[in-house]
Design a protein around this nucleic acid. Structure first.
Length: 310
DNA sequence: AACGAGAGCAACCGCTCCTTA
DNA sequence: ATAAGGAGCGGTTGCTCTCGT
């Protein structure tokens, strides 16, 4: 404590990274691998602090990062995990290995928080329902601003990047760099229209939303339409169907990323969740669901938790 | 066409935790 | 055992872009 921040040094550049800087950083990391960030500015000649280099790599240049629109499934996962883990974005990101904690955090703050707030507003304007889904979402929103300080954090074990085994260049990222270098053309379109999104949702859930949701959707539609749109509602609630379609897909995706560390990260997260839940009966629908899922299938293998949770 | 408001996101800041000497 | 330095995390800021007037 009390140390001057590393980025306060004279000559350290701040602000947006240039494509040239990105290329230098990527080249260096290709050769040496991520880690030992302190030596990166020295060895590359970059006028950036080590921290800035690490963040740039982690949040933008790292191979395998998926950018752009979040799928309804990802949204659901985030809502889900946020309710369970709180604002522990690194832990949440470990379940969505293609997304960075920063990305998830931003998406939560800019999209999901609003959606949930809208949803809660809608909820307040309706006759109270005993739907677990509604309780769950309310809970999620209420916990969004809490500090979750009751967790015994072991964040050092949640190092996202260092054990990623492959430092091979990401064709996508490199091409993005070059692209950025050569043009001033507009960014790739990353925003799906609501219609497209709706289409995606419909494809995924086959219209078999749980009764509680359908009930609420009908209510919401009947009521003032400016409170929350149908699309938003469906998107928000899409995680209801995860247990039947999403989770396994996600976990199998994650294993293909080459990040071996995610297993231990999940172990930590779930252990923490377990501790928390021990002190916090009864389970919410969400928490119960997640841990039940954790006790079966691929997640079990990954977490090494087996059935001793219950 | 010009301007302002709002949204989205990259990057920074400050704190905490871990490692090492 | 402890202090210092390094690394990571979550919160916040501020720039840029888009959209409405």
């Amino acid at each position: 404590m009390g140390r001057p921040p590393c980025c306060d040094k004279v000559g350290i550049k701040k602000g947006p990274w240039t494509p040239e800087e990105d290329i230098i950083l990527v080249s260096y990391i290709q050769e040496h691998g991520p880690g030992n960030w302190r030596s990166v500015p020295t060895n590359t000649g970059l006028l950036r602090c080590s921290k800035s280099c690490r963040l740039r790599w982690t949040n933008y240049l790292r191979p395998g990062i998926k950018r752009g629109n979040f799928t309804p499934h990802e949204e659901g996962m985030i809502i889900h995990l946020q309710a369970l883990l709180g604002n522990r974005w690194a832990a949440i990101a470990s379940y969505l290995p293609q997304r960075t904690d920063n990305d998830i955090k931003n998406y939560w703050n800019t999209h999901l928080k609003k959606k949930i707030k809208k949803f809660q507003t809608a909820l307040d304007n309706h006759v109270t329902s005993d739907s677990s889904t509604l309780q769950l979402i309310s809970k999620s929103y209420n916990s969004a601003d809490s500090k979750n300080s009751d967790f015994t954090t072991q964040t050092s074990s949640m190092r996202l990047n260092q054990s990623c085994s492959t430092y091979a260049s990401s064709t996508e990222n490199i091409s993005r760099l070059l692209e950025g270098w050569m043009r001033n053309s507009p960014k790739p379109v990353i925003t799906k229209t609501c219609q497209e999104k709706q289409h995606t949702i419909n494809e995924e859930d086959n219209g078999n939303a749980p009764a509680s949701i359908q009930c609420y959707q009908m209510k919401a539609e009947q009521d003032s339409s400016d409170i929350i749109s149908h699309e938003e509602l469906e998107s928000l609630l899409s995680f209801e169907n995860l247990s039947s379609m999403g989770w396994k897909k996600s976990t199998s995706d994650s294993t293909s990323n080459g990040c071996e560390n995610t297993t231990s990260e999940r172990e930590n997260s779930v252990e923490e969740a377990k501790l928390r839940l021990d002190n916090q009966p009864p389970f919410s629908f969400l928490e119960k669901w997640l841990l039940e899922e954790a006790g079966t299938g691929q997640v079990e293998e990954l977490m090494g938790l087996s059935s001793n949770i219950f």
